[in-house]
Structures are given as structure tokens and as C-alpha cells.
Computed example of a mutant assay.
Amino acid sequence: MTATREAASETSSILIVDDMEENLVALEAVLGSLAQVVRAQSGEEALKAMLRQEFAVVLIDVMMPGMNGFETAANIKGLDQTKDVPIILLTGAAVDPNYAYRGYTVGAADFLIKPFDPWLLRTKVNVFLDLHRKNRQLVDQAEQLKRLLTADGGHPGIPSAAPDAHASAEPSYGTDHTDPTDPAEHPAPPKVPDRLAEVAGRLAQAELLLRDADSPGRADLADRIVELEQAVERLMAARET
């Protein structure tokens, strides 16, 4: 696999992990129309793929030689870079009743027994794909708002003030006998730009969406948005003075 993590992040991708080629072919046939599907034939290969590329969801066969599905899932959840990626564990019909419990204890989001209904599998995977796309949209929106704040007032949280032409100059009175420091004769410029108010409103909406959704990583993103909201408030307060 040659795609970089940055390039792959432009589209949602699915990682399927199974040591048997025929199982990978079957999974790809079911899921290929939903998103890009990447194959791995061992737990080690799966971990390498996840460090190179971003995935919306990973499907792992439990019974694999070497690093089995449980161990692979535990290793994925143990890495900061991949700990929030949802995992679906797959196993055969003759399964230990404790497998499902063990799967959830290592951080799996779901557990399916083969042979599974293709429609059911597509439905479950599609939920994670939609969630991944919405998460990415919210991240992109937060970055756009941050750039908008930076363009409007310098670095977020550090308002940039325009130089005051009268601050360093001595009062000067021309032939019209007007005082340049008199507010009545020189009205103050408009205060808070409409753009800042719009940014504050959009940040508040994004934060509400994040707080209402129960998803790994969204709370951290909501906290980042709160910081941006506070930066907007500081900018607005500074420009009102």
C-alpha cells in the first residue's frame, strides 16, 4: 500500500484483516461499493497499514495465526494514533460463548458471527463511515473558523490592534479650530465586525453538535472549539473598548 496518511484522509476507507484470501475477497465484494477497502492478512500487517493511513472502521477476523484478532484489536486501541478507530470482530459459527465478551473488553465496537448477512454487515459498517465523515467535517469546520479568526484578528486569543494615528502625536488644531480628539467631531469607527459575531454563532452550533454526540474524540474537539469561542469573546471585548 503506497497511499500516505494525508492522501488517504480525503476519502473514508475500510481496513479488512483476515489470513484467508477467500474471506478478504468476500468482504471486499460486500463492502467495496461503500468506500475504499484495504486488505491485511495478519495483525502485524494491519497495524502497519493503520499507521500509514486513516480508516473509518476496521474489520478483524478473530482466528488468525500469530497475532489473533483480540491481540490485534488490543494493540490498535493501545496506540494514540489509532485508539479511536472503531473495530468489528468477525468469527466463525463454532465460537466460544466468551468471545463476544472478550471482544468488547479489548475495545471492539461490535462482534459478528460468520456467515453474516451481507445487508447487516453493510448497515453496520455504513454507520461508522457516516460517523467518520461527520467527524471530519466538524474538524474541517473548526479549522476553517480558526483560519477565519486568524485572518480577522491575528493569532487567536491575541487581538491585533490597528495603530492609533493620534496616540503619539501632539494635539493639532487647524484653521477650522476642530479638535481631532473630540469624539463628537470624530466618531469612533464601527466596533465588532459582523464576521466575528458570525464566527461566534457558528462555533456555538458546532460545540452543541459535538456535545450531543456520543463518540470517541468528540469531547476533545468540543473543548478545542470552546477555546476558539473564548478567543472570539476576547477579540470582541477588546474591540468594544
Rank of each mutant, 00 (worst) to 15 (best):
R211G: 06
A231N: 07
M236V: 13
T178N: 09
I87V: 15
H166I: 05
P171L: 13
D220V: 07
L209N: 08
V106A: 07
Y173R: 05
M50G: 02
E71F: 09
H177G: 00
I88D: 01
L138V: 11
E22V: 10
G154N: 02
E71I: 04
M67P: 07
D80R: 15
A222Q: 14
A188W: 12
K134T: 10
A165D: 04
G69E: 11
V62D: 00
R147V: 09
L131T: 04
R52N: 15
A74W: 04
A109T: 10
E229C: 08
L31F: 04
V57H: 02
A200G: 07
D18Q: 10
R195I: 09
Q144N: 05
A161V: 12
E54D: 11
K191A: 14
Q230T: 12
A93R: 13
L90Y: 02
L129Q: 03
A151K: 12
D182E: 13
V17K: 10
L235Q: 13
P163M: 06
T11N: 13
E28V: 00
D96N: 15
D194W: 02
G66V: 10
Q205T: 15
N126H: 13
V95S: 14
K124F: 03
D140S: 09
R218A: 12
A100T: 04
G107D: 01
V139A: 09
L31R: 00
N98I: 02
T91F: 05
S12D: 12
V38G: 03
G103Y: 09
Q41K: 12
R239I: 03
D80G: 10
D194G: 10
T2D: 15
T181K: 08
G92Q: 06
T2K: 14
D164F: 02
Q230A: 10
D110W: 02
P156L: 01
A188H: 09
G153F: 01
N98Q: 14
R133K: 15
A219T: 14
M67Y: 13
G153E: 02
G157L: 00
D182C: 10
V232A: 15
K114V: 03
K114Y: 00
V192A: 06
R133A: 14
A206I: 11
G32W: 08
G92F: 05
Y104W: 07
E10F: 15
A94N: 11
P65Y: 09
E44N: 12
M64K: 06
T150G: 02
P193L: 03
T181Y: 14
T181P: 00
L51D: 11
K83Y: 03
K124G: 05
G66A: 06
I16H: 01
R224E: 13
G69Q: 09
G66S: 08
E21C: 03
A200F: 09
E71L: 10
L121D: 06
P183I: 11
R218T: 14
E229F: 04
R133D: 14
V37K: 05
D223E: 15
K114A: 00
L148D: 13
L203V: 08
Q137K: 11
V106G: 04
R147M: 07
A222R: 14
F116Y: 13
H166E: 09
A29H: 00
R224T: 10
R52D: 15
Q230Y: 02
V37R: 02
A206W: 01
L131Q: 07
K48L: 11
D212N: 13
